[in-house]
Nucleic acid binder design. Structure first.
Length: 613
RNA sequence: GGGUGCGUAGCUCAGUGGAUAGAGCAACCGCCUUCUAAGCGGUCGGUCGCAGGUUCGAGUCCUGCCGCACCCGCCA
């Protein structure tokens, strides 16, 4: 695979500093260091071994250990066989041909043939200046923005949001934030469950026991609605007459019967208001486009499948038989797109959504953030869409699966039983526990704070803790929900990171200078911890780029945790305010850049920072 | 039975085909006249589920097996 496919960024940008002074700087974010190293290596390959090696991947990766430098190129090892030479000889030939004096100290060859690269101090300091002066910390937007749909959260109307919606909501939000920050055109869609069988049963039941709820917007509240839903579900499972009536009701609704539609509209509005409270609390922005939106398009989906000759009728249902999926008897499994009673199901809706998102929304990439249990479903739906020819080559559909939120006992929280914790209760408890912690601390530290301060800190810490605990896990695996762990003040938690930020803000307040206008012309770093911190700061763009590709927010958490640790090490070893210049200014600049990096990173996780806590 | 995913330190988990596998928690030992000790340094802790294979090199890729979780025809 050819390396260095990335487009060369524009290198020159004017920076306005203060009111009168202009500086013209070469801005080369550190990711350009890798890009430039790649180019240099490619040139060196050709110089050293001839044109047939053009386009060889230099296998450049961050050094596995700081003592080896900043980056290492492992290419010599992989070339040993094709070139028929010892790797160390190859490495030495590459190094002789390598023109990177402006970027790196002289490369060294180590072990079996690793080429170790250490970025020049001046280069790093230039990068720090550039980051500090940039309101985006030197992170450029992508050269070719994509239209990206992130489909997440997706609660069901007439049910309360529960813990099962937590992960989709905050993982989806974080992914959307990262992609937006990188300059993509992101459409955040809430594919709410506002259609289908469940509505038939609910409306049928309400018509019989609480008809007012179907005509009066405020007749019942959401909690009652949930109880009604549970009762309706129970009747549906046990009463054949009721089941039949419910199915009829679905048909009425889907065919546009005015009375059914009005009832449905009322139920949706009521749920919507409840959802919005939680989204406001969590600072989540979403565009609602529920399953019902696709209702008019469902017959087209079936018709289009007929045209492609993929559609097969089986026991009265319209199916597409799948490749690679078999039932217990070893026969191909069908994806049912129209039930024997003429109704459509969620596979049909998802196919319609794919067609609409590609055809009308012009999406380049569609990201589905749902639990891992739906992996089969998406694999099947994607397969049918692909075989039907609905997915152009340049469009990517991707399921972003995540594991379950378990109780502290390690058992799954059931989604369909009544005792599933409600999301709003869970968030409230996190906030309350955070408030209690804060009170205890204020008491022991003999501090007095206003009720506003306490309320704001408790809410921010509580919600951040919940979000961070979730996002910091590898999303594939399930995790046990523990208030004690997520609110812990030490370890890889939101409070630890918020504290690191607050410490820096405290320095900033006492420094009594405008941090955005520090004079960066005389930077001087002396301690190892300063260099470690600086190098880590400059890695942010690599991390964001990886997240945009792999859609793993835990990478960002890991980066921020490392950053906090490196800052605390720096803080421990390097006095800032009492240091003589140029150390003082250099350290203030490092601290300020760290604070802004933390704030940005946490913001991309959906977490707000606190100046004091 | 078929499919998907996961098995890494006592516990919870990171880990991008590269050098001696890393954090946090817990335990133990140190460090506050100095910018928020919610911090920092150190000690202890591993047959990366098992067995093969590919590779110069495997926790990572492939195959088989064991264990756990989830999914499997008209719910979403």
């Amino acid at each position: 695979m050819a390396a260095a496919k990335r487009p060369a960024p524009s290198l020159i940008r004017a920076i306005v500093r203060g009111k009168s002074s202009f500086l013209l700087l070469l801005i080369t974010p550190v990711k350009d260091a890798i890009a430039r190293l790649r180019l240099a290596f490619e040139t060196a390959f050709v110089t050293a071994f001839g044109p047939e090696l053009a386009g060889t991947d230099p296998v450049l990766v961050p050094a596995s250990n700081p003592k080896f430098g900043d980056y290492q190129a492992n290419v010599a090892l992989s070339l040993a066989k094709t070139l028929g030479q010892p790797p160390r000889d190859i490495a030495s030939a590459i190094v002789s041909a390598l023109a990177i004096d402006d970027l790196c100290d002289p490369p060294t060859i180590a072990g079996p043939g690793f080429i170790n690269l250490t970025l020049k101090a001046d280069y790093l300091l230039d990068q720090l200046r550039a980051s500090h002066q940039s309101d985006r910390l030197g992170i450029q937007t992508v050269a070719h923005p994509q239209r990206i749909i992130v489909d997440f959260s997706s609660p069901n109307i007439a049910k309360e949001m529960h813990v099962g919606h937590l992960r989709s909501t905050i993982i989806g939000d974080s992914i959307a934030r990262v992609l937006e920050f990188l300059g993509h055109d992101v459409l955040r869609l809430n594919h709410v469950g506002d259609w289908g069988t469940q509505f038939g049963m609910l409306i049928t039941h309400l018509r019989q026991v609480a008809p007012a709820a179907l005509t009066n917007p405020d007749a019942i509240d959401i909690g009652d609605l949930v109880a009604f839903y549970q009762k309706a579900k129970q009747r549906f499972d046990n009463d054949d007459d009721f089941k039949e009536q419910s199915r009829q009701e679905v048909v009425c609704l889907q065919s546009g019967d005015p009375e059914s539609r009005r009832a449905w509209q009322l139920l949706c509005d009521q749920s919507r208001r409840e959802f919005q409270k939680i989204y406001d609390l969590l600072d989540i922005r979403l565009t609602e486009r529920g399953e019902s939106f696709y209702n008019p398009m469902l017959p087209e989906v079936v018709a289009a499948l007929v045209e492609t000759q993929l559609l097969v009728e089986d026991s009265g249902a319209c199916c597409v038989f799948l490749e690679g999926f078999v039932n217990k008897d070893g026969n191909p499994l069908p994806l049912i797109v129209q039930k024997s009673d003429g109704g459509y199901n969620y596979a049909t809706t998802d196919l319609a959504a794919i067609r609409y998102r590609i055809g009308t929304d012009q999406a380049d990439r569609v990201i589905y953030v749902t639990d891992a249990g739906q992996a089969n479903h998406f694999a099947q739906v994607f397969q049918v869409a692909r075989r039907a020819g609905w997915i152009p080559d340049n469009v990517e559909l991707v399921h972003v699966p995540f594991g379950l939120v378990l109780g502290e006992d390690g058992k799954k929280l059931k989604t369909r039983s009544g005792d599933t914790p409600k999301l709003k209760d869970l968030l409230s408890e996190a906030i309350e526990r955070s408030r209690t912690d804060l009170h205890n601390r204020l008491t022991t530290e003999e501090r007095t704070e206003s009720p506003e301060f306490i309320g704001h800190v408790a809410t921010t810490v509580g919600l951040s803790a919940v979000k961070y605990a979730d996002l910091s896990q590898n999303r594939i695996s399930s995790y046990a929900f523990s208030y004690d762990k997520m609110l812990a003040l030490q370890g890889n938690t939101a409070p630890y990171m918020l504290y690191a930020y607050a410490r820096i803000q405290s320095i900033g307040r006492k420094a009594a200078v405008n941090l955005s206008q520090l004079d960066s012309t005389q930077l001087h770093l002396s301690d190892d911890s300063e260099w470690m911190l600086l190098k880590h700061l400059l890695r942010l763009d690599e991390v964001l780029e990886a997240i945009a590709t792999e859609l793993m927010p835990n990478r960002l958490c890991e980066y921020l945790f490392d950053l906090s640790k490196k800052f605390n090490q720096f803080y421990d070893r390097c006095p800032v305010l009492n240091a003589p210049d140029p150390d003082r200014t250099s350290r203030l600049l490092l601290a300020d850049t760290t604070a802004r990096t933390l704030a940005l990173g946490l913001n991309l996780l959906g977490i707000q920072v606190l100046d004091r806590m």
